[in-house]
């Protein structure tokens, strides 16, 4: 389903980034990093108009020839980015949303772990499992 899933801290450094092993990891790092531009843009415009009642899901950040990049920002400004292969057209917006929701839930679990130091890279196996599940389902 997804080819790359990333969690980015409030300060914009990656807390977690994983991509499908078949493709160039570096490319996704660049893609995800660049997508932060659009995330910031969207958050700032949305934030102005709606105030607190902000939708966490930012939708399609930007498409490239090969990938579609979707974004999601938690209230604590942690960003989730999911990169999907463009050829995978069967994926609906709702599915992306539910992926983000699942990701957010799992992320919350990670943060609830008293042994996890917020701000450290995520090394939770459970989180890894969730992400793997999202990447394996590739049609």
């Amino acid at each position: 389903m997804a080819v790359c899933i990333a969690v980015i801290a409030k300060e914009n450094y990656p807390l977690y980034i994983r991509s499908v092993p078949t493709q160039n990891k570096l490319k996704f790092h660049y893609t995800v990093h660049t997508s932060l531009d659009v995330v910031e843009e969207k958050v700032s415009t949305v934030g102005k108009s709606l105030g607190d009642q902000r939708e966490l899901y930012l939708g399609l950040l930007y498409p490239t020839e090969d990938y579609k990049v979707y974004g999601y920002v938690t209230n604590s400004k942690v960003k989730f980015v999911i990169v999907v292969d463009s050829s995978n057209t069967s994926l609906r917006d709702n599915e992306i949303r539910s992926m983000f929701r699942k990701l957010h839930n799992s992320f919350t679990d990670v943060m609830c772990n008293p042994f996890h130091n917020p701000g450290d890279p995520i090394q939770s196996k459970a989180f890894d499992g969730i992400v793997s599940g999202m990447m394996v389902q590739t049609g």
């Binding site: 300060e11 914009n12 450094y13 990656p14 990891k25 570096l26 790092h29 660049y30 990093h33 932060l36």
Partner: peptide, 13 residues
């Protein structure tokens, strides 16, 4: 920019 935001792989590259 990569260094300041802590993106190690792009930094290396």
């Amino acid at each position: 920019s990569y260094v300041s935001e802590g993106w190690s792989l792009p930094v290396t590259h």
